[in-house]
Nucleic acid binder design. Structure first.
Ligand SMILES: NC(=O)c1ccc[n+]([C@@H]2O[C@H](COP(=O)([O-])OP(=O)(O)OC[C@H]3O[C@@H](n4cnc5c(N)ncnc54)[C@H](O)[C@@H]3O)[C@@H](O)[C@H]2O)c1
Ligand SMILES: NC(=O)c1ccc[n+]([C@@H]2O[C@H](COP(=O)([O-])OP(=O)(O)OC[C@H]3O[C@@H](n4cnc5c(N)ncnc54)[C@H](O)[C@@H]3O)[C@@H](O)[C@H]2O)c1
Lengths: 208, 208
DNA sequence: TTATTATTGTGAAAAATGGAACAATATGAT
DNA sequence: ATCATATTGTTCCATTTTTCACAATAATAA
């Protein structure tokens, strides 16, 4: 079983690159084209494919449409993924207004907020009272949530949605949360991303 | 020279955990406390510290204030980091309104946009016309930028700010950009983050 | 048909990362 | 003052990840 997150991220990148190549009219692709497009080595591309039993043609490369089909299958993109957002503040509402997820087969179908002033049932993505989250998650069989509440509320909100059946969370609050076995939590920590960038810029500056 | 991004991310996490411990009244800390707080092994903590020549006291652990000083120094937090945002749309304005960066010594001092309707010089974080970016970057010696423009505009905007002297970019547009040697580009790709989460949730579901 | 060539698929090598173990040693107890 | 103990710092080991290298082979050309 593959536990290598970077490998899966590369699969997503291959997929995105393939769509671009396809849009440019290409029908087949070689491992080194894809490597260039994504910024890895050609060996890495072939190795990644071989891990998932994806094969191409000796001397013929890979047929883009078939490759995309397989990648999409691995990445679970063969069905629409319904996602909710908890917290309709700055980040939460930016995400709910973003159209880019849909072309990836990811649809944010509702937001939830504790603040009555944020509730709006007639939005393209309705924002509902937090009390309704539990039943909404259960009724619609939602598995994935984005957590965009203030730091202080994050653990409590996580507990609530996990209890309701959420299986995966993308958390924007910059702190480590405790989740049950049944739920995977991934972190987007923009402070740390910036700090990291600053570190490497400083290093580059010193060594130049 | 350290090229291990994960290692630097851990330093940020140690730092954050130390502030929390300090706020709770702790004065010293042992490698295993910190390991617990951050979710790594105690060996890892000590190894990370040793890489950067940080030492504690046999049997005495590490003194939190000294440790923080050293970590902050390594992470370049001994001086305020001024950052600009290019693109004042959904993501860009969420970031500009976010107060959380300041407590990390990161200050967004201006935004830039191509759309005249977005310009606002009297905002807490002013949004200025893109034409002014070049001179602003040079005058203020800005090194770090956040790129939050539509995908189609990202490469062009990157070229502009790199030419003006930007050394590090955190890019939100979901595509690979070409940057000169002088500029590091890191990516925040939320589509891929979600895709990744979905993959691992699917795997967990299948193997349970 | 046969030779040539380009490209895959993979096993082996290398590099990077992380973890375990333990000697060294400072602290506190007796 | 001596001993016992806790914790670091570092070496060594295991694992993971990436790269290398090349045999296998399909496509093309002669
Ligand atoms: N805005 C940014 O640019 C940014 C950047 C980095 C990190 N973050 C993090 O993202 C999180 C959200 O930030 P934000 O700027 O969107 O905050 P925000 O204050 O704008 O929005 C938070 C929203 O959550 C709602 N809320 C509070 N408690 C809730 C609960 N228990 N359940 C449901 N909703 C609840 C609030 O009513 C509010 O609408 C924070 O943890 C923040 O640290 C934000
Ligand atoms: N909003 C989200 O939740 C979200 C999520 C994932 C990724 N993204 C990515 O982030 C980027 C920004 O998304 P958004 O939703 O904020 O878009 P947006 O359309 O709301 O905002 C983009 C802003 O950039 C400005 N702009 C356009 N060209 C410019 C240029 N050359 N220089 C400066 N400013 C320019 C526009 O006037 C607009 O104000 C996009 O690449 C998008 O794919 C956004």
């Amino acid at each position: 079983m593959i536990t290598n997150k970077n490998c899966i991220i590369r699969l997503s990148r291959y997929k995105n690159a393939l769509y671009r190549l396809q849009a440019l009219g290409f029908v087949k692709v070689f491992s080194d084209n894809l490597a260039d497009a994504v910024g890895v080595t050609a060996s890495q591309v072939r190795k990644d494919f071989s891990i998932f039993g994806i094969s191409g043609n000796k001397k013929g490369g890979y047929q883009i449409d078939l490759l995309l089909e397989k990648l999409n299958n691995i990445l679970g993109k063969d069905r629409l993924q319904k996602v909710i957002v908890v917290g309709g503040g700055h980040i939460g509402s930016a995400l709910m207004r973003y159209r880019g997820f849909e072309k990836e087969g990811i649809k944010i179908i509702a937001g939830f907020d504790i603040d009555p002033a944020k509730i709006n049932r007639s939005n393209p993505v309705p924002i509902l009272p937090l009390e309704e989250a539990r039943i909404f998650i259960k009724t619609n069989g939602i598995r994935i949530a984005i957590l965009a509440v203030p730091d202080i509320a994050a653990q409590q909100a996580l507990d609530l949605i996990c209890a309701a059946g959420i299986k995966g969370v993308l958390n924007f609050a910059p702190l480590r949360l405790k989740a049950p076995e049944s739920c995977i939590v991934n972190y987007v920590n923009l402070e740390i991303e910036l700090e990291n960038l600053i570190y490497f810029v400083n290093v580059a500056e010193k060594t130049e």
